[in-house]
Design a protein around this nucleic acid. Sequence first.
RNA 1: GCGGAAGUAGCUCAAUUGGUAGAGCGAUAGCCUUCCAAGCUAUAGGUUGCGAGUUCGAGACUCGUCUUCCGCUCCA
Length: 485
Amino acid sequence: MANENNFQDIIAHCKEYGYIFPSSEIYDGLSAVYDYGQNGVQLKKNIRDQWWKSMTQLQDNIVGIDAAIFMHPLTWKASGHVDNFSDPMIDNKDSQKRYRVDHLIEGHAEKLEQEGRKEEARALLAKMDSLLAKDDFPALKELILSNGIVCAVSGTANWSDIRQFNLMFQTQIGSVSGEADTIYLRPETAQGIFVNFLNVQKTGRMKIPFGIAQTGKAFRNEIVARQFIFRMREFEQMEMQFFVRPGTELDWYAHWKAERKKWHESIGIPADKLRYHDHVKLAHYANAAVDIEYEFPFGFKELEGIHSRTDYDLKQHQGLSKKKMQYYDNDLDENGKPYGNYIPYVVETSVGLDRLFLAVVSMSYKEEKWQKEDGTEDSRVVMRIPPKLAPYKLAILPLVKKDGLPEIARDLMHECKEFFHTFYEEKDSIGKRYRRMDAIGTPYCVTVDHQTKEDHTVTIRDRDNMTQERIHLNEVIQKIREAIK
RNA sequence: GCGGAAGUAGCUCAAUUGGUAGAGCGAUAGCCUUCCAAGCUAUAGGUUGCGAGUUCGAGACUCGUCUUCCGCUCCA
């Protein structure tokens, strides 16, 4: 069974074998940020490619886009990110409760008012507004202390300093400082799809129901980082927003709920490691929501979210942009009349690519021990990554570094690399090289030996069961392509 | 954010009461040629996380700081 110790081993293995490095490690690292190494980038790309193919190429009514990370600031006003998550916060050190500063002071003003001290309340709020406008946090804290405002839980005034709680990363657009405007790094890719809804629908002549898919980076200023790449400040999402006729959204929600779980199983994730988790408490924009959870070494956690987002987002954008986010539906209803104009409802599927990566790595990592024929114990660390996701598909190994074997191996290498990632290695004993390939998860190894010179056959070794068979040189490419289909 | 623990070579760890920083594995080059790790030779790799202090002398003691891990907290 998986456990925490195993998880530490997985993290160490990821670094040791070029999958994941802590960001900026030579400068002591950057909290909650990680880099993908030479093997990690390939695995990540392969997962992303599988998703992209399944969501666009294999679908009749879904197209992809790639929206910019920078978006007009009003986008985040519309989505609710600006108003809800960028306020000054203060913590009470005794109760460890966190408050929005404006809520805390307003609450106190209300109490004053009830006590009939209306003038004081008004003065307090006026003072607060002017200080908030100036972002004068020390003065705001002083205001809280001088008014004797205490925590409702602990009853104490043991307050931390006031800090800005920023969900979103800010930066400046415009090369001349002073004239610059604040913009945000997107906290979710979904809004790039919503703001392009009309563009795609019109230029692609899309008919409802249809979907728009996108993969890309998103950024969140989280408070703390834990659990390796499960929660990062910079992460990659794979999202698809599916636009449907109002009233049909829950049918489509059920459809995608089932489809998405099937997809995870199709890339090799065991069904018993997956489960649904229905949301009881729904976000402000949803009328149904479910997580597909994976059993990580630290427990079942969200891998993908499927949300019925109603028409919330398009309606919000219509309100702020003054552009009609409408679709004219020519299909006939039960009375034989066209459905006509409406704002489509949206069913969202949103996977964390980094989380999926971690799921694949977690399920693949195995430490194995067994008895050899002579009675001694043998062991290996193997990454049983599904072949179609593995960074390298094939390793080509000359049995010895002489007798013309490397030359044959290199010729084969040259042919293979047109079709899939191939690794070449001639140093050390053959057993050692097999172990190295096991450790990075290469599913197949072809070994060129002396017999190859006589009959043009090689051995091909299977990573998972360590068995070998002998095949003709001409069969190698076809066999690997078949295995990674 | 709070509490606890830990930072020595790429990895795992040594280094006696405070007295010259080491080993194994790994890496690199060469030898050997052997189908499942651990054959031979050589080489490289360290301001002991960082900064102060105590001391004739600090990897070790004191203080500060940074990072990581564990448990709470947070995670629309």
